[in-house]
Structure formats: structure tokens, C-alpha cells
Design a protein around this nucleic acid. Structure first.
Length: 199
DNA sequence: CTGCCGATTTAC
DNA sequence: TAAATCGGCAGA
């Protein structure tokens, strides 16, 4: 369970967004591990993307995290009640990130159930499993990710992404591509095919 | 300081 | 289809 190294994140944002599919988001909490396989991502590239918070070089207290070096977390609150977890990409000074939109839990489901629903789910129906963390807000709720986790180094040992979990088989999948979700205000950028998901 | 709006989710 | 809910940001 070795964190992806810095070099992984310092690359082109679209490449990182695609390659994050099938990787595992890991968060250590109270000595246990919450682990989810990433199944959906979106790229946001400040230099050319009106949907990006840092479009046009905009620097505010919130967006300054987007300018950090690749491998940093960018977490913010949307709609006054949900958090979104992003991974900053590219070298320091380039505002770009990948939004993690969906994971499938592979470890720590009991603890995650407490965080998400306030109780442990005994019976896991197919629908419950599917709906558990298949959205950016749900994902953060289930993994206890809030603005406290903003601007963290993702190359450390308690909050990171890895490509291998012992005892877990890496399934193969095909790459799906589509426009991004929920950015109808972003003019021409709303049609950019920057959403990636595993099929 | 005021007012508008959102990279969502859930319930009706 | 609409409500929930509040921080971020622009403009006065």
C-alpha cells in the first residue's frame, strides 16, 4: 500500500484524471483504513476552463490551493452542505485539479457507514452498495473528508492514493468519456469531454 | 456590508 | 421538481 509518488501528479491533468481510475483512495482514521476504488473523475484546468474555480488566473483564499504542486488535496464546500475532493495536478503555479466523483468501497465499510448514515448497515443490498459513494458529496461524507483535509500532502502516509491494496484484486475495466456534470454555466467549457469513468 | 449562486443530494 | 443550506465572491 505505497502512495503514488509526486511525479504521478505533476503531469498533464487529463492524463492524471484517466489514470486515477482504478486506483485506491486511502484515508487512515483512528488506526483503521477507509479505502475506495476510484471509478469516476473530472479534470479542471484553470488556464483554459471556465468551469475551474481558478479560471483566468483568479487567486482568492479558496483557489490558492489549486496553484500548489501536484499531489495536494483541494477540498471545498458546495451548496452549503456537501464537500468535493480534488487532487491538484501539474507543477506549482499551474492551477489544475481532478475531482474525484465516485468510489466503490473495498475496505472500512463499517466505519464509512457510520460517517455516511450514522449507523452500521447490516444488510447490504445492491442498491445500497451502488449508492454508497457514487457522487462527489457522498464520497466525502463516507470518508469523512471536509475542509480540514484541504491543502494536504497526498504523498504522505495517512491520506493518499495507491495502485495496489493487498488482498484486493485489481479488476480490469474500459474507459468511458463524457462532458462534465453540473457546470451548465461554463459556456463552451461545459461540453469539454473531461469526465472519465470506468465501465 | 449585501446579495447572488453553486463541480450536490434527497425527498416528494 | 424543488428544497436544503451557507461559504465564497463581486460589487457597492
Amino acid at each position: 500500500m505505497k502512495p503514488l509518488d509526486r511525479e504521478f501528479y505533476l503531469r498533464d491533468t487529463l492524463t492524471v484524471a484517466k489514470e486515477l481510475l482504478g486506483k485506491y483512495l486511502v484515508r487512515e482514521m483512528d488506526g483503521g483504513y477507509l479505502v475506495g476504488r476510484i471509478t469516476e473523475t473530472e479534470a479542471y484546468i484553470g488556464a483554459i476552463d471556465k468551469a475551474c474555480h481558478a479560471y483566468g488566473g483568479k487567486i482568492t483564499p479558496r483557489t490558492k490551493t489549486l496553484y500548489e504542486q501536484g499531489g495536494t488535496s483541494y477540498v471545498y464546500l458546495v451548496y452549503g452542505m456537501y464537500h468535493c475532493m480534488n487532487v491538484v495536478t501539474e507543477p506549482q503555479g499551474e492551477a489544475a485539479a481532478v475531482l474525484l466523483r465516485s468510489v466503490e468501497f473495498v475496505k472500512g465499510y463499517e466505519e464509512a457507514s457510520m460517517l455516511r448514515y450514522g449507523k452500521e448497515l447490516e444488510v447490504l443490498s445492491k442498491a445500497q452498495l451502488k449508492n454508497f459513494a457514487n457522487g462527489p458529496g457522498k464520497l466525502c461524507k463516507a470518508m469523512g473528508i471536509t475542509r480540514e483535509q484541504n491543502n494536504r500532502n497526498l504523498c504522505g502516509q495517512n491520506f493518499f492514493i495507491t495502485d495496489c491494496i493487498e488482498g484486493i484484486n485489481n479488476p480490469t475495466f474500459e474507459l468511458g468519456i463524457s462532458p462534465r456534470i453540473g457546470i451548465d454555466y461554463a459556456q463552451e467549457a461545459k461540453d469539454f469531454p473531461w469526465r472519465f469513468f470506468s465501465i
